[in-house]
Design a protein around this nucleic acid. Structure first.
Length: 223
DNA sequence: GCGACAG
DNA sequence: ATCTTGTCGC
């Protein structure tokens, strides 16, 4: 079943960009964000690309915020509904992700998705779009920079530098492990940058990538 | 015009 | 994203 929010999906670049410009003002980029103690379940979201044909696999893993144990999961594989166009990422990955979210037993208190949020040419990346459609707190965590400029952060875990776009801070390059390439964090919806980074660090005890996203990535590959 | 471009 | 072996380093 197709998610209600994606029944009227754009088919062209101009249509998709218009939707981003229209929805961008609806993203809450400051929070206050959920109180740390109120976050019991954190969901990681990722999309995989199975095999031949233009298919996408949306995966969501829900983790206990304290133990980081997986307590719920959902995977949806379906035909892609939009081509890959940098900047219009959400129109390709949102449909399978929303479908997977619908199949969850638990409603997460916080979403962490693979991709940028505010750090986007029109300041409305996947994390923002996901937040506006679900009205859940969302943090965007990308593995490579996309737009804006930044200096490399210090080598220590927890050190960071701002990502600046047109004179505005739109995210941070955040070191999650000593000496390892940083991840790129930006606001999605209903949370500020400070809180977003604090959550990301707390959710990344062992590897470079936050545990919720790692688990979702595994799921999207059928593991 | 040419290159770069989240996953 | 995905196609893919070994190899350097802690």
């Amino acid at each position: 079943m197709v998610h209600p929010a994606t029944t009227d999906w754009p088919r062209t670049v101009p249509e998709a960009e218009a939707i981003q410009r229209r929805l961008a003002p609806l993203a809450d980029l400051t929070g206050p964000g959920p109180a740390p103690a109120a976050v019991r379940h954190v969901a990681g979201l990722d999309v995989g690309y199975p095999t031949a044909g233009d298919e996408v696999t949306g995966a969501v893993a829900v983790l206990d915020a304290d133990t980081l144990a997986v307590v719920d999961r959902a995977v949806v594989r379906e035909p892609a509904r939009f081509p890959y166009v940098p900047g219009l990422f959400a129109f390709r990955e949102l449909p399978p992700l929303l479908a997977a979210l619908d199949r969850l037993t638990i409603t997460p208190d916080l979403l962490v998705c693979d991709g940028h949020g505010l750090a986007h040419p029109r300041r409305f990346g996947l994390a923002c779009h996901l937040g506006v459609l679900t009205d859940l707190p969302v943090i965007g965590v990308a593995k490579t920079p996309f737009t804006g400029r930044h200096d490399p952060p210090g080598p220590e875990r927890g050190s960071w530098t701002p990502i600046v776009l047109d004179g505005e801070v739109v995210g941070r390059a955040l070191r999650t492990r000593y000496g390892v390439k940083p991840v790129y964090v930006s606001q999605g919806h209903r949370i500020g940058l400070d809180d977003a980074c604090a959550h990301v660090l707390r959710l990344t005890p062992a590897y470079r990538i936050p545990e919720p996203i790692r688990q979702a990535d595994r799921l999207s590959r059928g593991r």
